[in-house]
């Protein structure tokens, strides 16, 4: 449990001028160049991210969406751009954008050091690939970013006192079931049917010294857009990548369900009326190619690269659950 710096948050205009914050932001900017360097050289097209729309990602653990009044109608602020990723990959095959997201997270997340209400993720989606392919992109990307930052931001890292080492993919993969068994063997109470709670995820992450994947989450633990494996009912073709050393989740990704009837049935799991996803369902009914992809949160990435204790250090104007700040 970390205490959010509630007082300091009110005067972050001072914090941003500190040497430490300058170093962190320099490393972060280097990481952005590393991301673009990899993706642009591997055939991806960068697009502008959506910010508002009639619906957004419902698959966020316990977090509330932000609603805005749009000329008498309601719009949601993107909690993730997932629905638009499928839309864009259907046109340009390999796409990415730096997507700002807002999630009114439950208050308990204020002390995890891993949650921000406002954050940016790099959203990546490719048409006609499997989730294994998406994991290859993910591990190559992360390995490239780390190597790029180690080479290009060495003096900043040194001044921050952070030693970072390069990795060579492929990264280790364990299934969700194996992860649960591993945690249970250490006396942790975790369920086979839900995502691994933050506290246990951190413990799991400490058991590894390289980034690794947790794959094949149980159905119900993720949003309706993660595809169920037809040969293994109840198992989703999806993954998380975790940083080592206790830094926890880096990436969340999946092969997407793109078939209209399946999506309709899956939407019921959240108790929603599919009607509200009008445009998205129209798009699926008319047909889109299968896609797979993932999102990588840039504040968490920065936290890992710089060895920070909390994500709020990785943003010049952090918003923490329940705290009103500039």
């Amino acid at each position: 449990m970390l205490k959010p710096p509630i007082q300091e948050l009110q005067t972050y205009y001072k914090t941003i001028r500190t040497r430490r914050m300058q170093l962190i932001l320099k490393v972060q900017a280097t990481a952005f160049r590393g991301i673009r360097d990899y993706l642009d050289n591997n055939g991806f097209t960068e697009l502008l991210p959506p910010i508002i729309g009639p619906v957004t990602d419902p698959g966020i653990r316990g977090a509330k969406q932000v609603t805005i009044d749009y000329y008498g109608k309601e719009y949601k602020v993107m909690s993730s751009a997932i629905l638009y990723k499928q839309m864009a990959a259907a046109s340009l095959d390999k796409i990415y954008f730096f997507s700002p997201n807002v999630r009114l997270e439950p208050l308990e997340t204020a002390t995890t050091g891993r949650h921000l209400v406002e954050f940016v993720q790099v959203d990546i989606e490719e048409a006609n690939i499997t989730y294994e392919d998406a994991m290859r992109t993910a591990e190559n990307l992360v390995a490239h970013i780390v190597s790029y930052v180690v080479d290009e931001a060495a003096p900043y890292l040194e001044e921050l006192g952070r030693t970072l080492r390069k990795f060579r993919p492929p990264f280790k993969k364990i299934t969700h079931r194996e992860a649960v068994e591993l945690l249970r063997s250490k006396g942790e109470k975790v369920s086979y049917y839900t995502e691994i709670p933050w506290e246990q995820e951190e413990k799991l992450s400490r058991m590894f010294d390289e980034p690794f994947f947790i794959i094949d989450y149980p159905k119900g633990a993720r949003g309706f857009y993660d595809m169920e494996d037809e040969s293994r009912p109840g198992i989703l073709r999806d993954f998380d990548m975790l940083y080592p050393e206790g830094y926890g989740e880096a990436i969340s990704g999946a092969e997407r369900e793109y078939r209209y009837e399946k999506v309709i049935a899956r939407m019921r799991e959240s108790g929603e009326d599919p009607a509200k996803y009008g445009w998205y369902l129209d798009m699926l009914r008319e047909g889109i190619p299968p896609t797979a992809g993932f999102g990588i949160g840039v504040e968490r990435l920065t936290r890992y690269l710089c060895g920070l204790s909390a994500v709020w250090e990785a943003r010049p104007y952090p918003k923490i659950a329940g705290v009103y700040s500039p």
């Binding site: 653990r61 049917y193 839900t194 709670p197 119900g220 019921r268 108790g271």
Partner: peptide, 24 residues
């Protein structure tokens, strides 16, 4: 308002989703 559509599979996943999203 709609009665909501269920199958055994939908209910099972819905319960998992609830446990997942609202652990407290």
């Amino acid at each position: 308002s709609a009665p909501g559509t269920f199958t055994a599979d939908i209910l099972r996943s819905m319960l998992r989703l609830m446990k997942n999203n609202y652990p407290r």
